[in-house]
């Protein structure tokens, strides 16, 4: 059972890492536009890159 002394802190540390990552993402504003993020995937090139214009966009 001594292994618990190591395993519990390890488990908590990993969990805590996840929590910190989430809180960091929250602070840096990544949760401010959930709908937009879902839709931006559909854009082939992230807006701003000028070269390859989306075919469908140029069609109209």
């Amino acid at each position: 059972m001594e292994v618990l002394i190591i395993l519990i802190p390890v488990a908590l540390f990993l969990g805590g890492l996840g929590l910190c990552a989430f809180l960091w993402a929250l602070r840096s504003g990544q949760f401010e536009d959930l709908d937009g993020a879902a839709m931006r995937i559909l854009n082939e090139d992230e807006a701003g890159a000028e070269a390859p214009v989306n075919e469908s966009t140029s069609a109209n």
Partner: peptide
């Protein structure tokens, strides 16, 4: 989103144009 952002970035001097969909 793309139409607005690329449309604005085409103007001179624009650095960021970001739409928040929510």
């Amino acid at each position: 989103i793309q139409k607005i952002e690329t449309g604005l970035l085409a103007l001179p001097g624009i650095e960021t144009a970001r739409v928040n969909m929510s």
